[in-house]
Design a protein around this nucleic acid. Structure first.
Lengths: 342, 342
DNA sequence: TTGTATGCGTTATCAA
DNA sequence: TTGATAACGCATACAA
């Protein structure tokens, strides 16, 4: 087993009778080094199979060129696209991305935040765990001047970057769309209230009804915990069992919306004639199900790019000051068969 | 803006009138340090807000506790689950995971492999880019004794760990299943031949037909480039336009299989009576489409876990020797409505 | 059980 | 334009 020692700048310096400082500078094409020497060094480096040791460089320069990511779970369409966007932008700028998962556990989130801090990441991007209500574990990044970006599931109060969509107006638009299609009894499959994004969506739904002079019937609002397919089925059955069932459903994610469609179809209802459905997220399933699911676009990839950009931009500044900046990305109503009556 | 200097073991040592070596040992609960000192040090560390500098530790000990991952794209269901499995196992063992994407480009793959090498990752997990045919850029890991695991899209020849499924027998099973349901003219929507996994699937399909004395009709085999929904539609239309159209389709992934179902339904065919369909991967869409898509389970999460385990196990050994080890994970036929005739 | 001294590979400071 | 030297924070061989 060949277990070669790495070639270092010291080896190059020795071979060329130069100092390590000259070699170090030459390798980064520093302007103070002559073209000739620079070329000589780079040639030797290539020939000798030199590979820079990022670790040593980071330790010395106190810059890691690494962005830490802390999310609930990778294997969700939204998260996967988010990371993809983060990574692509970071990669182009020569940054690495370290991924960690909280599995929606508060303790895991605390531990991972610490691990990322210990790795001396240059910046951190986080979407909060379901369980999380306190955010003390992020204070250390602020104290150290490390840019912190919360995305999608963001805390209400925190002086830092936040990248999100306007859940309130997106929900408003979705509900309004159903109203415009002629729905008069619109139900809402809602997420947990203590999570901001779901609360905002519910608020948008309620306000849209009010604005169009439709009654807000509490029986038509069903809260579900994890927004899973099974919970969607249950919620829908509950709604359709009502004495006066709804003629439209606005669901807080696509998974439950798809469940609603399936349940309704199985009960012999016609979509969208008997009941129109609109979801949220624009997951891949939404255009595969029959009829196609109307939904709200959720620009995950774009959000990821934005997060990385915020961090990269912050790192370029010399002046460091406390920052509170909320970026809202646009969403739009995507109309497909499940709600298109006119 | 508070931009505190980090607390180091030197600060702790000074405060407690100890040497840095004692502090260093105490912090890792080294057995040679007295309980009393250990406690004193740890208490002081907590009080002073000490956080270990992973960078310095890694540089000194030449161990990074980091696993590098190099895949085509994160935002694919299979890849997202794979990474999730990798990360979960690594996280439990105190390892970080750095993710990089090749975007199926050879050049990106080479660059990212180099970046991971420069970061001195402890191990690397890779699923090859579509474009990749040479694998020289991975030799450096072998030379250095860094464990390398190829997963799913693996090179044919390379003395290292490989984690994959037996694509041949999975395809054989899928085809056999259609035959058992009474199909006699079975088509295959196939991937590009030069990619091993698709070639193996095609081979399994052909051998199954032969074994059951069914003719292999080249007209029934359609090769598509990227296995996208659109390509699946085209391929299906082509097949259904044949003079004697197929009564069954085995598709090399779920996306094209779903496309096949939709096209067939739109042309007024009944599934599975007129034409039975089976896919590959068990993507989430497969149980949402109507009828449910029969498919082959592809244990992505499990594969990810296996990859991490291989690396962690390798790193625990003292004896380092060249390793060639191929691990096949089990797949099974998942029967849903799209193929269940009996 | 604790301390001394040194080095990991690089970059920054200062001087030449 | 180049060089000598120290420093980044930690871990380890060796000595006490």
């Amino acid at each position: 087993m060949t277990n070669n020692k790495d070639v270092t700048i010291y080896d190059i310096a020795e071979k060329l009778n130069l100092s390590t400082s000259t070699v170090s500078r030459a390798l980064k094409n520093h302007s103070s080094i002559s073209k000739k020497t620079t070329k000589k060094v780079n040639d030797a480096a290539k020939e000798m199979g030199y590979t820079p040791n990022t670790l040593a460089s980071s330790l010395r320069s106190n810059k890691t060129k690494t962005i830490g990511v802390l999310i609930s779970r990778i294997n969700r369409p939204f998260m996967a696209s988010l990371i993809s966007g983060i990574e692509e932008t970071a990669q182009k700028a020569g940054y690495n991305v370290i991924i960690t998962q909280s599995h929606d556990s508060y303790q895991d989130e605390v531990d991972m935040a610490q691990a990322l801090y210990n790795s001396r990441v240059s910046g951190i991007i986080c979407s909060l765990a379901m369980e999380t209500t306190k955010t003390d574990h992020f204070q250390q990044f602020i104290d150290k001047g490390i840019p912190l970006v919360f995305v999608d599931r963001v805390p209400k109060e925190f002086n830092t970057y936040r990248v999100m969509i306007d859940n309130y107006s997106a929900a408003f638009k979705a509900t309004k769309h159903l109203i415009e299609q002629g729905c008069t009894r619109i139900a809402h499959i809602a997420g947990l209230k203590f999570r901001n994004i779901y609360n905002e969506r519910e608020r948008g739904y309620r306000d849209a009804l009010k604005q169009y002079n439709l009654e807000v019937d509490e029986d038509l609002i069903v809260h579900v915990k994890t927004m899973s397919y099974e919970e969607g089925e249950k919620a829908t059955n509950k709604l359709l069992d009502l004495e006066t069932p709804p003629d439209g459903i606005f669901s807080s994610n696509d998974t439950t919306a798809v469940a609603a469609i399936q349940v309704a179809k199985n009960r012999g209802l016609k979509i969208p004639e008997d009941i129109a459905v609109i979801g949220f997220n624009n997951d891949p399933i939404s255009h595969i199900i029959d009829p196609g699911l109307s939904t709200i676009s959720h620009p995950a990839f774009e959000m990821g790019k934005t997060c990385s950009k915020k961090i990269l931009k912050h790192l370029k500044r010399s002046k460091i000051d406390s920052i509170t900046e909320i970026t809202f990305l646009n969403t739009e109503v995507i109309v497909r068969g499940s709600s298109k009556r006119k």
